[in-house]
Computed example of a mutant assay.
Amino acid sequence: MTNPVRLGVFGNPVAHSVSPTIHSLFAELRDERILYDRMLATPAYFPKAVAQFFRNGGSGANVTLPFKEQAAQLANILTERAQVAGAVNTLMKVGSGFVVGDNTDGEGLVKDLNSKGFSVSGRSLVLLGAGGSARGVLPALLSLNPAKVYLVNRTLEKAQVLKRLLVDLSAHGAENIQVVSNADSINEPIDAVVNATSSSLHNIDIPLPGSFADNAWGYDLMYSETSTHFLKQLEKAGVKKRADGLGMLIEQAASSYQLWMGGERPDTTFVMSKLRPRTY
């Protein structure tokens, strides 16, 4: 019997991650053998931890907060979407010693939005945050042709740097991004808001747009067994269509798994039915 393919996820915190369950279900579906571990690291130790993982037989790793931008600096080769994002959520070993960095976050979010009927095209969109998670999803959101995009970050310069990066890389729609430091300064009803900050992780309020359109939707990249803090904020604000990031997590994981293991993309509907049987 062949040895299992060694995979894992780097993060801090990482104990809460359901990625091992998701990938184990993918492997079960495809009758494949994997070993998928949670790997806690610190920013100072992260490069050494990644090198050690691949040196000791690791084939692929996911990367979550707060290491996505740092992971982009470690990869020997970046895919085009990882270059545009400036952040990496998927590392894979190719040949002897080469590590490729990819970003499946945007693809995962778009697939989940489509499955939920959350429309972006022609609508006003607010993206909260300008870190690694925002970098991963913004190009994909722009590709869906929103009418207007507000990029909101407390440190305005960080959001401006992200916009300049996307403009320089000729990302679709990047010139139309409007950078603001606070969402409640936006003076129009908003159709859609995506939270790419860690506010729900720390259970803190984040400023919301001053008003929402009647059919507005909100999405939190964070996920939880119960409603996330951000989704509770949206509920109080009267936003009826809300979702956390579990669907995105499963979809981006399917993309990562396919990159590592080849073959067809795993069935994400099956995995969601296992993780949220009362919803699906």
Rank of each mutant, 00 (worst) to 15 (best):
Met1Ile: 03
Asn3Arg: 09
Asn3Glu: 14
Pro4His: 04
Arg6Pro: 00
Asn12Asp: 15
Ala15Pro: 02
His16Gly: 03
His16Met: 06
Ser17Asn: 09
Pro20Gln: 06
Arg30Asn: 13
Asp31Tyr: 02
Leu35His: 14
Met39Cys: 06
Thr42Phe: 02
Thr42Gly: 05
Tyr45Asp: 15
Tyr45Cys: 06
Pro47Glu: 12
Lys48His: 14
Ala49Tyr: 01
Val50Ile: 12
Ala51Asn: 13
Gln52Pro: 00
Phe53Ser: 01
Phe53His: 01
Arg55Asp: 15
Arg55Met: 08
Ser59Ile: 06
Leu65Glu: 05
Phe67Gly: 05
Glu69Asn: 11
Ala71Thr: 14
Gln73Pro: 01
Leu74Ala: 09
Asn76Gln: 14
Arg81Cys: 13
Val84Ser: 07
Ala85Cys: 13
Gly86Ile: 04
Ala87Thr: 09
Asn89Ile: 13
Thr90Arg: 05
Leu91Tyr: 11
Met92Ile: 14
Val94Lys: 07
Val94Thr: 12
Gly101Phe: 13
Asp102Thr: 14
Asp102Met: 09
Asp105Gly: 14
Leu109Ile: 09
Val110Ile: 15
Asp112His: 12
Gly117Met: 08
Gly117Cys: 09
Gly122Asp: 08
Arg123Ala: 06
Val126Arg: 04
Leu128Ala: 10
Ala130Gln: 10
Ser133Val: 15
Arg135Trp: 04
Gly136Lys: 10
Leu138Gln: 06
Pro139His: 08
Tyr150Gln: 01
Val152Cys: 12
Arg154Phe: 02
Leu156Thr: 07
Leu156Met: 08
Leu156Arg: 13
Glu157Leu: 11
Glu157Pro: 01
Lys158Ser: 12
Ala159Cys: 06
Lys163Phe: 00
Lys163Gly: 00
Leu165Ala: 15
Leu166Val: 06
Leu166Asp: 01
Asp168Gln: 12
Leu169Gln: 15
Gly173Cys: 05
Glu175Pro: 00
Asn176Pro: 00
Val180Leu: 06
Asn182Val: 02
Ala183Arg: 01
Asp184Lys: 08
Asp184His: 13
Asp184Tyr: 11
Ser185Cys: 06
Ser185Leu: 10
Ile186His: 03
Pro189Gly: 08
Pro189Asn: 08
Ala196Leu: 04
Thr197Leu: 09
Ser198Thr: 14
Ser200Cys: 09
Ser200Gly: 09
His202Arg: 12
His202Cys: 01
Ile206Met: 09
Pro207His: 07
Leu208Ile: 10
Pro209Gly: 08
Pro209Cys: 07
Ser211Ile: 03
Phe212Cys: 07
Phe212Val: 09
Phe212Gln: 02
Asp214Phe: 07
Asn215Leu: 07
Asn215Ile: 03
Trp217Arg: 01
Tyr219Ser: 11
Tyr223His: 08
Glu225Pro: 11
Thr228Gln: 06
Thr228Val: 09
Leu231Asp: 08
Gln233Asp: 14
Glu235Leu: 13
Glu235Ile: 07
Ala237Cys: 11
Lys240Ile: 13
Ala243Pro: 04
Ala243Trp: 02
Gly245Val: 07
Gly247Asn: 04
Glu251Gln: 14
Gln252Ala: 09
Ala253Leu: 10
Ser256Trp: 03
Ser256Ile: 04
Leu259Tyr: 10
Met261Gly: 03
Glu264Met: 11
Arg265Val: 11
Asp267Ile: 07
Phe270Asn: 10
Phe270Pro: 00
Val271Gly: 00
Lys274His: 14
Leu275Ala: 05
Arg276Asp: 02
